[in-house]
Amino acid sequence: MKLSGIYHAYEQPILSGVDLSVAPGECIGIIGPSGSGKSTLLQILGLLKRPNAGSLFFDSVDVFTLDEEARRKLRLNEIGFVFQDAHLVPYLTVREQLELVQGESETEGDAIGLLTDLGLRHRVTELPERLSGGERQRVAVARALINDPQLILADEPTASLDFVNGRLVMERLADAAHNRNKRVLVITHDERMLDVCDRVLRLRDGQLIAI
C-alpha cells in the first residue's frame, strides 16, 4: 500500500504532498494536533474521500481511478476500520457483528476463532450494551479483521478507554500487524500507546514527519 503526493485543501491546504508506504506486518502510529489533517488522511486512506491530488496504490492499482462500487468492495474486503467509540451495531450480538461483514463479502472467516483469540469467546451471544468499553473495542478489532484485509485503519481507538483497556486494544492491533501480517495505521492522541508501533509519524504542516 502506497500513498503518493497526496494534496488536499478545504479553505486552506491541509495535506501538502503526503507520501507513505506501509509494508505488510508493519504497525504505524500517526500523531498530530487537532486540525492537522489526521481525519482527512484517514478518510483518504479509507477510500472515503478523494484527494485534490495524489494517488493511493493498492496492489499497484490507483484506487481513485476505480468507481465507487469498486472502492466499496475494496473497503469491505481489504480495509478494516476501528473507530473511536467502537460503533458496533447495537442490536446485533458480538458474533452477528462479524457475520454482518462476512455476509456482505461472502467470506468464510472463523469468527469464533478470531473472537477466541481476542479473549471474547465467552461473549459471542452478548449485545454491545452488555460489554465493557474495552470488550466493545476488541469486538471492533475482530470486525476489522474478519475479512482478512490488507490494511487496518484505527481512528483514536483508545480515546474512550482507560489506560489498561486502551493498552490491550493497542496490543491487539500491533498483534494483527506482527502475527497476522497486516498493515496497521493507528491515529492517536495518546502518546503512551505508541511504543507498540514500529514507526511513529507526526502530521505537521500537511506533511508526515518521522519521529
Binding site: G46, R75, L76, V101
Partner: peptide
C-alpha cells in the same frame, strides 16, 4: 452515525 459507519466499512446501501 451507525449507518454511516456501516457504509464506511463497506456494507452496501442496498443491504
Amino acid at each position: 452515525p451507525q449507518l454511516g459507519i456501516l457504509k464506511a466499512i463497506g456494507i452496501r446501501s442496498q443491504t
